[in-house]
């Protein structure tokens, strides 16, 4: 945009615009460093020697380069890769399942068919008022019996929220030309065919945005695993659950000095290993994020009302 050559009332206007711009750059730079620095610590610590960490503490830059932490983790590679496998599987299957069910549900819901208004009203009600964590737990663990199965990681998060369904519905209503659907119907296409051949391809923007938010939610999920998967079924642990478990063990021992003495240093992952593990947990997201942040931001503003 070219600035028009207008003389404003006084020079003040131009000048304070410059000042604001400088302030904006300074503030946002500080906030960006503030946001990124912690990730730097994770990485630096993972390639620092244990002795250096003991002496100087964690830092933003590595001290006394050492790959001990990574070598240690390599020994546990089987567990880590398995957890990665679980995470990737759950994220992929969960996201696809979630987007398909939600979009199909949303397409059904915009039809002019009896009874849908009641379902809609109930959906809005559950947005405002819900059963809470305890009763959800008893429904899923008690009645649905998903404990210690892979469904525990897939199902409780399947519908992001009633609100995402409403978002998809309003996208169908506003962004897909009505004439197109009518024409298809005149040509004798059934509703399911219309959904597959017209609705799905044309609503890719919204489905991709919601799918992205879902994928991140699945990748990051640790609560469902914590509620529904017992320690003895740790083969079903995702990477976040594994991290959670490690953290709790360390903290449990840290609070009970006798335990620490009894079990010895060996079971407690050392300081550098800890950070290497956390780094493994965030790395894929960090690498991918710059490429999808635009869509993520879009998803947040859509869901902004959702909070």
């Amino acid at each position: 945009m070219k600035r028009k050559n207008v003389t404003y009332g006084s020079g003040i206007v131009e000048r304070d615009e410059q000042i604001v711009k400088v302030v904006a750059y300074i503030v946002l730079s500080i906030l960006s460093i503030f946001a990124l620095a912690p990730f730097m610590i994770l990485f630096s610590a993972s390639i620092s020697s244990e002795a250096a960490i003991a002496k100087y503490g964690y830092g933003f830059l590595p001290k006394e380069f050492s790959l001990d932490a990574w070598k240690y983790l390599w020994q546990a590679a089987k567990i880590i890769f398995r957890a990665y496998g679980v995470t990737i599987m759950v994220t992929a299957v969960g996201t696809v399942l979630s987007v398909l069910t939600m979009s199909m549900f949303a397409y059904g819901m915009i039809q002019k068919v009896r009874g849908l208004k009641v379902i809609m009203a109930m959906m809005v009600l559950t947005m405002l008022f819900n059963g809470g964590m305890v009763s959800s737990y008893y429904v899923w663990a008690g009645w649905m019996d998903i404990k210690n199965s892979i469904f525990a990681l897939l199902f409780p998060n399947l519908f992001a929220s009633a609100f995402s369904v409403i978002l998809i519905m309003s996208y169908y209503r506003t962004s897909i030309p009505h004439e197109l659907l009518e024409a298809a119907r005149i040509d004798g296409a059934g509703e399911f065919e219309i959904y597959v051949k017209i609705i799905l391809p044309l609503s890719l923007p919204i489905l991709a945005t919601i799918g992205l938010l879902q994928a991140i939610a699945y990748w990051n999920d640790w609560t469902n695993g914590m509620y529904y998967i017992d320690v003895r079924h740790s083969e079903m642990y995702s990477i976040q659950l594994l991290l959670n478990q490690m953290n709790q063990q360390i903290e449990f021992m840290a609070n009970n000095p006798e335990f620490a003495a009894e079990l010895g240093q060996l079971t407690i992952p050392q300081e550098s290993v800890r950070m290497a593990m956390a780094f493994i947990g965030v790395l894929p997201l960090m690498i991918a994020f710059p490429f999808f942040q635009k869509y993520f931001a879009k998803g947040l503003t859509l869901g902004g009302v959702k909070g």
Binding site: T101, M102, M104, F105, A106, Y107, G108, M109, Q111, V113, G115, L116, I119, M122, M123, T126, N130, G131, G132, V134, S135, S136, Y138, V139, W140, W143, M144, F155, P156, L158, F159, A162, V165, G190, E191, F192, Y195
Partner: peptide, 25 residues
């Protein structure tokens, strides 16, 4: 019928995940 078949998976999920916990109250 087709509409209800299409919303069925979502509806079942919605009932389990959102409506039944209301009973859990």
């Amino acid at each position: 019928v087709i509409t209800y078949l299409m919303i069925l998976p979502g509806l079942i999920y919605f009932i389990i995940n959102n409506i039944l916990p209301m009973y859990g109250i």
